[in-house]
Every structure is written in C-alpha cells, then in structure tokens.
C-alpha cells in the first residue's frame, strides 16, 4: 500500500483540483477499485465539494480539554490568572472566567487553584467522516471554526484511512494536504511514501515551495514538484525548474492557466472528468502517469 500526499506550502495553488483529477484518473487505470482518498485539510475541507460523496458515517471528534471554573467554589484569589501564560483567564465583574478560545488546555490553573475550583472538560471540536465517492472511499473531517489540534484530527483521519486500506488491501491512498508547514502538514506528511508539491510561478509560490520541500525532506519523504498556472509567469516557472534541478528534485510537469478548472469546481467534478480535452486536463493526465510510475517503481 502506497500513500501519496499532495502539498504546496502556499495555499490556493491547486492542491485539491490536482487531487480530484488524480482520483478520477487513478480510478480509470490500474488503481481502479484499489484506492482510498483522504482530505487532510481539515479546516478548509474542499475535496468533498468536488467529489460530492455519500456520507456513510460521521463521528464527533474530541480534541483537547479546556479549563472550567466553578464560580460557587471560587474565592476570586486570582492565582489562576497569574499562572496562565495564554491570557485565557479574565477578570470580569468580580469573577474570573475562562476564555475558551484562548485556553490552551495546559491545566496549570487547575493545579494552582487553592480551592480546587477548576476542572478540565473535554471539547467536541469537529467531526470525522467516512464517505463513499464515485472514485472510492473518502476519509475526511471537519474542524469547527477556530479550534485547535488540527494535527491530531489529521492523524486520526489518516489512521482510519490506513486501517481501511490494510483491511481491504487497497493499493493506494491519496491525501489532499493542508497549506503551510506546521502541525497539520507534519501530520499529513509523516509516514507517506511520496509527496507531490503543487506550486505556482509566483515569488510567493517559490518562497513557500522551498519551505515545504525542507519540511518534507525533514520527515524523510521523497518529493516531486508540479507547476500550476505555469504560463502566467514563464520566468517564475523557469526559476522553479532551476531551483528544483539544483536540489535534485524532479519536476513532473506544468499545468497551464485554465479557467476550466474553476468551471469544473462549480460543476462538482474533477477537471479531467468535466472536460478531458481541456489544456489543464491533458497536462494533469501526463503528470498523473509520471507520478503513478514513481509510485509503482
């Protein structure tokens, strides 16, 4: 079983459109019936908007705990406020109250409270969902807005997918990753067999690609690069090709700027299924062949 993760560093370079196209293309070829999909961008989960799957099962996701003050026992000494390093305890109208968004869940206040008036309560901070899409099962999740711990949720979604892949002897798991290089990205990339970084030829795209590549390498995952909207700024595309060559990273293709991608998104289809002859679709088909060859090698 192989796990392919799609990443970018910079957001909005087209990770999800590439993932959806790969799902469609893989389902046509040798991975037909052999594939699972994961949406690991849990605070902006968009893959389901394209795949429009049927939800089979959804479970609450319990994340970290937050402190709760029992106002009847509190003697308003303020010790909790003085130990909190997250500015999560606020004095308001003669009472000390917890700001649930600021609370980090460290429980320092719980142990310092002289009257044992503070306890920790577990929060439901999202949902973990299994759906069936036209291209295979989709493991996805929804983190409630403003919540923490998206790394843990990503880990959980990936573990569920991995378990299903092992149980049903699936050959391929495609993971649509989150932007950035932090905790959810680390959770999405660790243990993957191959990462495809989708970048764009902008100064910001190249800057973030470098950081994303360092992150992927930090976790020992081999990386390929493809360049989206490549014709918008050919000099930038050349810079990316050069930077990758200098690092010994293979670039597996360029996708031209193509508004068909936006139209496909609105139609709720992958671009390769929506319009197989569109310039972006042709490019994506060629890129998929190269990625699939690396996965099979």
């Amino acid at each position: 079983m192989k796990q392919l993760v799609i990443l970018s560093g910079k957001g909005g370079t087209g990770k999800t459109s590439v993932t959806a196209a790969f799902a469609h293309l893989a389902a046509q070829g040798r991975f037909a019936g052999q594939m699972l999909l994961v949406d690991a961008d849990v605070d902006a989960a968009n893959l389901e908007l394209v795949l429009q799957p049927d939800v089979l099962d959804s479970q609450p996701f319990r994340g970290g705990q937050i402190a709760v003050i029992d106002q009847d026992r509190c003697v308003t000494c303020g010790d909790c406020e003085s130990v909190c390093r997250f500015d999560a305890i606020i004095e308001s109208k003669g009472q000390f109250v917890i700001d649930p968004i600021a609370c980090d869940g460290c429980a320092a206040c719980v142990y310092q409270c002289p009257t044992a008036s503070i306890s920790m309560q577990e929060q439901t901070i999202g949902e973990c969902t299994l759906s069936e899409s036209r291209y295979g099962s989709l493991h996805h999740a929804h983190l409630y807005p403003g919540q923490e711990n998206s790394g843990k949720l990503v880990t959980q979604v990936r573990q569920r997918a991995r378990q299903q892949a092992l149980d049903k002897q699936r050959q391929l798991v495609i993971v649509d990753g989150p932007p950035g290089i932090g905790c959810p990205v680390i959770a999405a990339v660790s243990g993957a067999d191959l990462a495809l970084l989708v970048t764009e030829p902008t100064v910001a795209g190249l800057h973030d690609l470098r950081r994303a590549l360092q992150t992927v390498q930090h976790f020992g995952v081999p990386a390929l690069v493809c360049i989206n909207k490549a014709d918008v700024y050919p000099a930038g595309t050349q810079d990316i090709e050069d930077a990758c060559r200098a690092q010994g990273i293979t670039t597996v293709g360029q996708i031209p700027f193509d508004l068909t991608i936006a139209s496909a998104m609105i139609a709720g289809e992958s671009v390769t299924a929506f319009c197989p002859d569109a310039p972006a679709s042709l490019a994506l088909s060629a890129i998929w062949e190269r990625v699939a060859a690396v996965l099979s090698a």
């Binding site: 970290g64 711990n149 790394g151 843990k152 880990t155 573990q159 905790c183 680390i186 959770a187 660790s190 243990g191 976790f219 020992g220």
Partner: peptide, 8 residues
C-alpha cells in the same frame, strides 16, 4: 520503528 505521528 517510525518517525512518530505528531498528533497535536
């Protein structure tokens, strides 16, 4: 046996 999961 592996690099860890980074769960949070």
């Amino acid at each position: 046996t592996h690099g860890g999961h980074h769960g949070g």
